[in-house]
Design a protein around this nucleic acid. Structure first.
Length: 656
RNA sequence: GUCUCCGUAGCUCAAUUGGAUAGAGCGUCGGCCUCCGAAGCCGAAGGUUGCAAGUUCGAAUCUUGCCGGGGACGCCA
């Protein structure tokens, strides 16, 4: 049972005679903000009083008169301007927690209407090694998939792999011109990635060479304009204001052009300083165009390119799978962009025939009233875009997968794209489904700039995970009670613990943020031996397990034996109430697609347990009954923490 | 230029969607191991929620205007 939902339902009944639509008022029941107010509070009397033109405390009294919850709660109290404070009855709490001890679902009920939810997450590009930019989508998406599945929905995790885009043209061009056959037979994916980087680099070189003179003169011109503006002296406040704005804009432009010139010069120098690269660059002046042509040939069915594509795919997919295995992330399906390729032409003609899309500057676009940007579904050169693919994907997910909801766990920077996509889809006839951009912010480095290596490269995911596990290992060797004092722990056990702690730290740091905001990546913070980290929860779990191990108690036997839980002390009551709220945490995390609600809950739960652990001896409890009751509470705590972490993709270990 | 997101303790972040005295972690200061794992627990200090108006019983949250920062803006995905 979700206690909060139950209370809301009771309030809905009570409010029915006082207001036409009681639902929004019943929703104003929430967990008490401060435990001194009780366990839950209802804030509905104030707004309702306003609606009825009555005194809020009187209205609160009327609500209480209608309320039927004496089986659940002590008599409600009216406080302050009209808050209704609720405290759960001790006997009810004890009986409910006792049932929870033997409830395999930890009171999380299956929803009355189970929905089919497609979650589109991770979405890496093939043949480009996964990097830190893929981390959030992968970790958040996987957690949402697990949470919604646990809730009882039919969830389809779909990896929409980028296997058909521009980067393939580069790989094809590189494969045909620069391939190191020996390296390719040894490590095919690494060699293909090298082709991608090489073609990209040479393309950038020519772009920089062609663009630099123009950029430089633009920069000089803007700098002159800036100097001129700086020397003017405005007479009126209005002029002063305008001048200030202009200065800011010019400064931004100069800074932007400076960056552009600097980055261009860097790209130029990188090739110029390397004789081999320089020769390659001179030999392939139109490399960018030619690479695009390779993409186009692939898309139009060129046999050779298609054959190569099919040759590349298995190794690339296997390489990705290695990373997912390591992260313990699973998908139900993985339909990449290529899968939808046969459907795209029909999508465009259908949009055109319905008058939704029209030609503009040679491209076919959907225009949404009120939005300037076009949604391009076919480019001037005839190629389709990811807009087309995304529309075809929605069509497929609705028709073939019977999706009620589609979640896109994608970077916030693409919010404009999704706005256009969702509106286009709605107009196209897919207006019965919920489309939701589960957006997230950027991972930043210490300098508040996007997270990069010291050399300025993006951080590869594999090296990131290696570093996390290595750092966790180092931390464990110096800090852990078991590691330092237990020579009997085998190397493989140590590796398992280090992996659980290191990967857990990386995932938890990400999941515990409000996903909407950017967050600063910090090894020190995520791998700290204290504070709000996954380690704290894993440690709490290991401490519970320590009680069972050292007292020689069998957890399954404890559950099987039955018997009740008594909550004599405040620490026991607080822990029990917290455990009872697991369903609320799951429901709220699922409702907003926000795993950080679950991490907050788990942190509070581990905290309650630590307090209980300090104050309530279990093995040495005063009586057998008390020990048995506390053992049940401990077992339940361990199950809640393990289940919660499991839904976040974080492992627990019994000894660490 | 247009659109969009953000600004909360020294630092990193919350705030159950308009509720009571704005909460955590880190850091700082003080207390707690003869006792189930001190990776812990208990306590203290720390705030004009960028600024200014407005909406109302009540605002970090909604409105408007400034200030400051990020991001996106036609054929990349």
């Amino acid at each position: 049972m979700n206690v909060l939902q139950e209370l809301r339902s009771r309030f809905r009944d009570a409010l029915a005679s006082l207001v036409a639509d009681p639902v929004p008022f019943a929703e104003m029941v929430k967990a008490a903000q401060d435990s001194k107010f009780g366990d839950y509070q209802a804030n509905c009397a104030m707004p309702l009083a306003k609606l009825r033109g009555e005194n809020p405390r009187d209205v609160a009294g009327k609500i209480i008169a209608q309320l039927k919850l004496d089986d659940l709660c002590d008599p409600p109290e009216i406080a302050g301007p009209g808050f209704i404070n609720l405290k759960l009855r001790q006997d009810w709490l004890e009986a409910t927690v006792t049932r929870l001890v033997t409830d395999p679902r930890l009171s999380v009920h299956t929803p009355s209407r189970s929905k089919t939810i497609v979650i589109d997450f991770s979405g890496p590009n093939i043949a480009k090694p996964m990097h830190v930019g893929h981390l959030r989508s992968t970790v958040i998406g996987d957690a949402l998939r697990k949470i919604l599945t646990f809730q009882g929905h039919r969830v389809i995790g779909d990896n929409h792999i980028g296997d058909w885009g521009t980067q393939f043209g580069m790989i094809l061009y590189g494969f045909k011109n620069f391939l190191d056959r020996e390296a390719y037979s040894r490590t095919p994916v690494a060699e293909l990635a090298r082709q991608y980087r090489l073609v990209n680099q040479l393309g950038d070189y020519h772009e920089a060479a062609a663009g630099l003179p123009g950029w430089r003169s633009q920069l000089a011109e803007r700098q002159r304009a800036l100097q001129e503006t700086e020397t003017t002296s405005p007479a009126t406040p209005v002029e002063k204001d305008a001048r200030k704005k202009q200065l800011k804009r010019l400064n931004d432009e100069v800074a932007g052009l400076r960056d552009q010139v600097a980055s261009g010069e860097k790209k130029l120098a990188a090739v110029d300083s390397d004789a081999t690269l320089k020769l390659l660059a001179l030999a392939h002046p139109n490399i960018a165009t030619l690479a695009r042509e390779e993409t186009a040939k692939l898309h139009t069915g060129d046999a050779e390119n298609r054959r190569l594509w099919e040759q590349f795919m298995p190794a690339c997919l296997a390489e990705l799978q290695k990373m997912y295995d390591r992260l313990d992330v699973r998908f139900d399906i993985a339909l990449g962009e290529s899968f939808y390729q046969p459907l795209l032409a029909a999508v465009v003609t259908d949009l055109q025939s319905r008058g939704l899309a029209r030609e503009s500057d040679g491209a076919i676009c959907v225009f949404i009233p009120g939005v300037d940007a076009p949604f391009i579904v076919r480019k001037t050169d005839g190629a389709f875009t990811y807009a087309t693919t995304d529309l075809a994907t929605i069509q497929y997910r609705v028709r073939e997968l019977h999706a009620d909801t589609i979640l896109y766990v994608v970077d916030a920077r693409q919010s404009d794209h999704f706005k256009l996509l969702f509106e286009s889809a709605r107009r196209w006839g897919f207006d019965q489904i919920e489309l939701h951009h589960v957006s997230f912010g950027t991972i930043l480095g210490d300098d508040k700039r996007p997270f990069k290596t010291r050399a300025g490269d993006t951080v590869g995911l594999e090296s990131l995970l290696n570093e996390g596990v290595a750092k966790a290992r180092g931390m464990l060797e110096t800090t852990s009670a078991d590691f330092s004092s237990r020579p009997d722990l085998t190397e493989s056990q140590r590796q398992i613990v280090a992996a659980a702690v290191g990967l857990g730290a990386i995932k938890y740091a990400d999941l515990s943020q409000n996903r909407e905001s950017d967050y600063v990546f910090s090894w020190d913070k995520m791998l700290a031996t204290n504070g709000d980290t996954s380690t704290y929860m894993q440690y709490a779990y290991a401490r519970v397990c320590g009680i069972f191990r050292k007292g020689n108690f069998d957890r399954t036997a404890i559950r099987a034996a039955g018997g009740s839980v008594s909550l004599a002390t405040p620490a026991e009551r607080a822990l029990a109430l917290q455990l009872l709220r697991f369903a609320e945490a799951i429901d709220s995390a699922a409702a907003e697609y926000r795993p950080n609600f679950l991490t907050q809950y788990l942190f509070a739960t581990a905290n309650c347990f630590s307090t209980f652990f300090e104050q309530c001896p279990v093995v040495k409890a005063d009586t057998d009954d008390l020990r048995a009751s506390r053992l049940r509470l401990c077992d339940l705590t361990a199950r809640v923490i393990a289940q919660g972490l499991e839904l976040l993709g974080i492992q627990t270990i019994e000894q660490m």
